[in-house]
Nucleic acid binder design. Structure first.
Length: 551
RNA sequence: GCCCCCGUAGCUCAGUCGGAUAGAGCACAGGAUUCCUAAUCCUGGUGCCGCAGGUUCGAUUCCUGCCGGGGGCACCA
């Protein structure tokens, strides 16, 4: 039923009746202060240039129009400079409960995305070691964003770009081979730029088992390659498991190597060259990214003949668009922000609009324990990895915490706090609201109370301020989904849910449900709780957090 | 030096498109449960929205400069 829509429609009718244009700067939104009604609009003020009249006078005309045209409105007031404050009837809000119950999991689904194909590429960490907590934040953001976009009506797919070619993988193979030789008692030294984590030794053991007698007898190149393959398989299996445990789905694992083997990178080179966007210089092959605002041109093929990471990444993005994606979203660590202008340039050189690529930068996570910073060095600290953190605090708490801040601001992740069941850690506050409601339902079932269908006559019992506060917030849930999708910011959902849970807890404390004064009120309140539980479930689902029936 | 992000209550942070007296939680103090889960609720007060200009009916929000914190400036990824 959408209060905004109802009001906007009535306002638009007024504007066109007068033969005026709807001003872009018009806002129709809930005011900060409840005293100003349910929705406020600045229309009279932004209409002033066209109306050529005192905004207050225009406001009077608008108010009169609304009172006549909109039966759902209980009051229309004018306040301040010329704000128009609209208050809806209780009956209007009460319908929200029925809507949420009837729509169920679909409540809050929108068609804003109009089926537009969006790819969310996220995590995409090199398979050279286990995922750490920073990857975890990117994982939570990417997965949740995909869920939100789907709810908003986009056809969103998820993908992991697997850097299985190139220098880092060779270094990985070398690292494992050195450790394997050391395990064999040979004299071998780990080069400076190799991977030093203890997990490399574990992989070396596996390589030795799997290679049998053949591995020690191999020549250097063959051994390194064998070790690289074993390492990649092992580490990737670990990454997949970690992501699964963290409830992150990647529908496609896209191999960089496959791109190279299919000649896609060379194809992209030729495309760029033919359009004058690339050239040879100093023995290297360059992309003219400065044509699209980058600071300097970028190398695609180095003078030693090897390719840069950027080269295959361009080919990969080209492939994404060729597969029909209208919009490509990349989730990157904020330390890669310097990479944005060149990727944007590449996308434009491929013939797309700059807006067809959205890069979400995820800031670093500051891992703490009881306020003390835990060093995030290369050494294997106890809770450095995503898997360890997950085991320690649980996926629900970890995900909610990651999604409780704007992704581009730094996040303190304190293991002590995230384990705690306090308002420092709102995940339990929200989950508890859901569990409490279900506890009432269990009791209702025990007592043989059946709420029946949420008809208007019953819902009319929801007429107190507390009832209406809750109803109004439920009505705004679709707006929350719209905002989160539009700004690609999952944290809006966590804030919404924390607020909704607060309203529920307050309501619960004051209003007895099963012991309400009469049977109709009991049923009405059960409906209100059912609607609230539904919205909590829907919202938590967007964050990938469970909604437990009991705690 | 250049570029990006951040700066809002003692702490951690919200505040798409400029709006009315700038919000929440935590912390601190006091109170609430013979009753559907007290993992809850209620009552207390706090702000030169980093600083200085500009844009306008109106700026925490937009623009410019400066200060402070973080990050990035590779023929690495």
């Amino acid at each position: 039923m959408r209060a905004n829509k109802a009001l906007e429609t009535a306002l638009a009718a007024f504007v066109s009746e007068r033969g005026w244009q709807w001003p872009d700067k018009t806002t129709v939104e809930p005011p900060k202060d409840k005293r100003f009604g349910d929705l406020a609009t600045n229309l009279a003020m932004v209409l002033a240039p066209q109306a050529k009249a005192n905004p207050r006078a225009t406001a009077e005309d608008i108010a009169a129009h609304l009172r006549a045209a909109c039966p759902d409105l209980a009051a229309v007031d004018i306040a301040g400079p010329a704000f128009i404050n609209a208050t809806f009837t209780p009956a209007f809000w009460q319908k929200t409960a029925a809507e949420a119950i009837e729509a169920g999991a679909a409540y809050g689904r929108l068609d804003a995305g109009a089926g537009k194909k969006v790819m969310v590429e996220y995590v995409s960490a090199n398979p050279t070691g286990p995922l750490h907590i920073g990857h975890g934040r990117g994982a939570a953001v990417g997965d949740s964003l995909a869920r939100i976009l789907r709810a908003a009506g986009y056809d969103a797919r998820t993908e992991y770009y697997l850097n299985d070619a190139g220098r880092q993988m060779r270094l990985l193979g070398t690292s494992v081979w050195v450790r394997a030789q050391q395990a064999l008692g040979r004299d071998a030294e780990l080069p400076e730029d190799c991977y030093k984590g203890d997990y490399i030794k574990d992989v070396a053991k596996i390589a030795l088992e799997r290679g049998g007698d053949a591995l020690p007898a191999m020549d250097e190149a063959a051994a390194v390659d064998f070790c690289r393959q074993v390492a990649q398989d092992e580490i990737l299996a670990g990454i997949k498991k970690d992501l699964e445990d963290f409830r992150c789905e990647h529908q496609v694992w896209f191999s960089e190597k496959s791109l190279l083997e299919a000649g896609k990178v060379e194809e992209t080179f030729e495309l760029l060259r033919s359009q004058g966007r690339a050239y040879d210089k100093d023995g290297a092959f360059w992309f003219r990214s400065t044509d699209f605002g980058d600071d300097k041109d970028r190398v695609l093929r180095k003078s030693d003949g090897s390719l840069t990471y950027f080269a295959s990444d361009i080919a990969y993005h080209d492939d994404k668009y060729r597969r029909g994606f209208d919009l490509v979203v990349d989730i990157w660590g904020a330390d890669h922000h310097g990479y944005v202008p060149r990727m944007s340039a590449a996308v434009q050189a491929l013939g797309r609009e700059a807006g067809d690529l959205r890069v979400i930068l995820v800031q670093l996570v500051n891992l703490l324990q009881g306020g003390e910073q835990i060093a995030m060095s290369t050494r294997a600290g106890k809770f450095e990895t995503l898997a360890d953190v997950c085991a320690e605090v649980g996926a629900d708490a970890a995900r909610f915490t990651f999604l409780s801040r704007k992704s581009d601001s730094h996040l303190d992740f304190d293991l002590e706090l995230v384990k705690q069941r306090s308002m420092d850690n709102p995940v339990y506050y929200v989950q508890y609201a859901h569990a409490r409601i279900n506890s009432v339902f269990r009791k209702a079932a025990d007592e043989g109370v059946d709420a029946g269908r949420p008809d208007a006559a019953t819902l009319a019992r929801l007429d107190t301020e507390a009832d209406l506060d809750l109803l109004r917030h439920l009505e705004r849930y679709p707006d929350c989904v719209a905002t989160a999708a539009e700004s690609m910011s999952p944290h809006h959902v966590s804030y919404y849910l924390t607020e909704l849970a607060g309203l529920l807890h307050r309501y619960y404390t004051v209003n007895q449900v099963l012991a309400a004064p009469d049977a109709d009120t009991v049923r009405a309140r059960l409906h209100l709780l059912a609607a609230t539980a539904q919205v909590i479930r829907n919202g938590l689902d967007l964050l990938g957090v469970d909604a437990p029936e009991a705690m």
